[in-house]
Amino acid sequence: MAKRKKKQKVTPAQTIITILTAILIVLCGGRATGQFSNINLGYSQNVKTSQNTPNKELASSVLTDNVKKQLGNSIVYNGHGAFIINNNKNDLNAHISSAPYAVNEVDELGRAHIGNAWLNKTSRQYKSREKTGNGRTSWKPKGFHQLTNLPGEYKHAYDRGHLLGYALVGGVRGFNASESNEANIATQTAWANEARSKNSTGQNYYEGLVRKALDQNKQVRYRVTDVYDGNNVIPSGAHLEAKSSDGSLEFNVFVPNVQTNIKINYETGYATKN
């Protein structure tokens, strides 16, 4: 006659493991596979950024036929608030034998229009505006009608938006890098000017790519064109192009002058809260 096997004792730890396993099976839809993709572990990827980054509909709202004509045929939303133009390729000549320079052009209506620059590490400015005499100002560009106490990450509507950024060209001798240079400053939304992450690509994000290249002793040809729709005082966005002489950096993008918490009248600059 076969002997009976002794009944094994179940320890408290084993009981807890059994209960947890059962819970996991239920949560995973009856499959104890060891994959936890269906379980909310409390992680959220860039929730704050996604709430404040213009979606495709808002970003595209400034792409009138006139604006698209100025940008060209290839305009593709990048998924992070801006647009890729011409597959990120541009016609800039990055093989120049000259000292760094920075120049501006206004259009026939006196609006800040184009910023052209040839940059290297000596053009970089690491000092604050206050230390170089280019501090804050009360001067306002065309259409600058501020709104404050807005909901979301960007609490105000507008910045004094530069074409050629202070950190890039502040070291160029003779260039007016102040915030009151009417040829280099236009009314720009806080998002379009300040956003700088891979998931929220405002102008500061692309300027960061140029800053990094200059810090690595690269030479960069850089152009910014504010794009206007007709006689509007507020630009529809900023067309940014860059190319390094060694070919390691090149982009061609359009950052729309929009913001999720406001609606802008581009003819006058007046905005209302969403």
Rank of each mutant, 00 (worst) to 15 (best):
D215W: 02
N90A: 06
G42Y: 10
K48H: 06
D226G: 01
N38Q: 10
G161D: 11
E130T: 14
P141F: 07
A242N: 03
Y77D: 03
N217E: 11
L109M: 14
A102Y: 04
T122V: 09
P235L: 13
L58G: 14
H80P: 00
G29E: 06
K198E: 15
E267C: 05
R196H: 15
G174C: 03
R129N: 12
G269P: 14
V233G: 08
E182R: 15
K142M: 12
N252G: 05
N199F: 12
R129K: 10
G247F: 00
A22D: 05
G230S: 10
A190N: 13
Q45D: 13
G81P: 06
L41I: 05
D159Y: 06
N149S: 12
V233F: 09
L214I: 05
N104G: 02
L119K: 03
K121D: 10
A59K: 03
Y154R: 12
V47E: 15
N116G: 01
T15D: 11
K155H: 13
A242C: 05
S178V: 07
N204M: 13
G133Q: 09
I114K: 14
I264H: 13
P100I: 05
A2P: 13
A195Q: 12
R4E: 03
K212H: 08
F83A: 07
R223L: 08
T122S: 14
N87K: 15
L27I: 12
V26R: 06
A32N: 12
S197I: 04
G135Y: 04
